[in-house]
Structure formats: structure tokens, C-alpha cells
Simulated scan of single mutants.
Amino acid sequence: MYRNILVPTDGSDITRHAIDTAIQLAKTVGAKLTVISAKEPFPYSAISEMQPVPPQEFFDAQERIASARVKIATDAATAAGLACEAYTVEALHPWEAITDTAKSQGCDLIVMASHGRRGVSALLLGSETQKVLTHCNIPVLVVK
């Protein structure tokens, strides 16, 4: 059925529920888990002589945050006896990092959280989940 399941994480509680779902599914079908967390790129337009945060400090902080997010998932997968790979990827748009990683790592299912935006905010802001659904030809399981 599925051999490699991708689960993106942003560190939120609902994402943790998606991770748990992906782990249960991977155990059931004998798949491995691939975890990704997107890092924000440095806001280069803000470069001036008066930098509030030096670029390297910003990159290091983003890496620490993303690494901590994927560690939660990899620890849970390891405790469940699953093979698991983790990636932190810099991306302006997380949905692009998710779809690119799914393709490059040969994932055949994406399990991700829905943040449940409704009404006008969903139309104006969109959601990463909606964009993955729109731009990816890999099946996506949305966890609420």
C-alpha cells in the first residue's frame, strides 16, 4: 500500500495529532516515516546597517526550532519501532517544501494537519494544506 509517508510539522498541537496518525498508519502498513519542518528564510529586504538580528544568528535559530520540531516526531517514530528520516528545509512557502520533499524522497502519501481556517480568513490567507492539495499529485490525508 504505502511505503514512505511524509508528515510535515510546525510544532503545533494539531500537527502532533497528524504525527501520531502518520505513525499509526505507518505501523499498520509497514511504511517508513519521513518528517519535514520548514524554516523561514532570512528577510533580506530588512538588511541594513542596523540589523536587529545578524543573519547567521537568524539561520541558527531557525535550524534549532525546526530541528526540535522534527525531533519530537522522530523520537515518537523510533519509540514505535519505525524507520524515520527527518529534514529541515528553508522555504518561503512551506507547501513548496512539502511537495518538493515528497517528490524527492519518493513519498507515496502525505499526512498533514488542517488548521481549520474558515470563512474569509481561509479565502484571504489560504492554508498550506490547501496549497499542498492543489499542487501535489501524491495522495494527502488531512487530519483535523
Rank of each mutant, 00 (worst) to 15 (best):
E57P: 00
Q51Y: 03
C84Y: 08
A83P: 04
K39S: 11
Q24T: 10
P139K: 11
L82N: 08
R16K: 15
A38P: 02
F58G: 05
L6S: 04
N137R: 14
T129P: 06
H135Y: 12
Y87K: 03
V120I: 15
L133F: 12
I47P: 00
I23D: 04
I98N: 06
A79H: 09
G119H: 07
H135I: 03
I23E: 10
D20W: 12
V111P: 10
A76N: 11
Q130N: 15
Q51P: 01
V140S: 10
C136V: 03
E63K: 11
P41I: 01
D100Y: 07
V29T: 07
Q105M: 10
A86M: 09
L133I: 11
S37L: 01
A122E: 13
K144C: 01
C136Y: 04
M1L: 05
A26D: 01
E57I: 03
A113N: 12
I65C: 08
K131D: 02
F42T: 00
I47C: 00
R118M: 05
N4R: 15
A79T: 11
L124W: 07
I47H: 00
N4S: 15
I47S: 00
F42E: 00
M1Y: 05
W95V: 08
S104F: 02
A66Q: 02
L6Y: 07
I5Y: 00
Q105L: 06
G81R: 03
E63W: 02
Q130H: 14
V111K: 08
A122C: 13
V89F: 01
S114F: 09
Q130T: 12
A31G: 07
E57A: 09
G116Y: 09
E85T: 04
K131Y: 02
V143D: 06
K103W: 04
P41W: 04
V53M: 04
G116E: 12
A91L: 07
D108F: 07
H135D: 08
A22F: 12
P52F: 04
A46S: 11
P52R: 01
L109Q: 01
E96N: 13
P41L: 01
H17K: 15
A80N: 03
T74Q: 04
V132E: 15
G119T: 03
D100C: 04
G11F: 06
A91R: 08
C107E: 07
G11Y: 05
T99C: 15
Q24R: 14
S67T: 07
N137D: 12
R118A: 06
A18T: 02
L123M: 15
P139F: 10
A122G: 12
P41E: 01
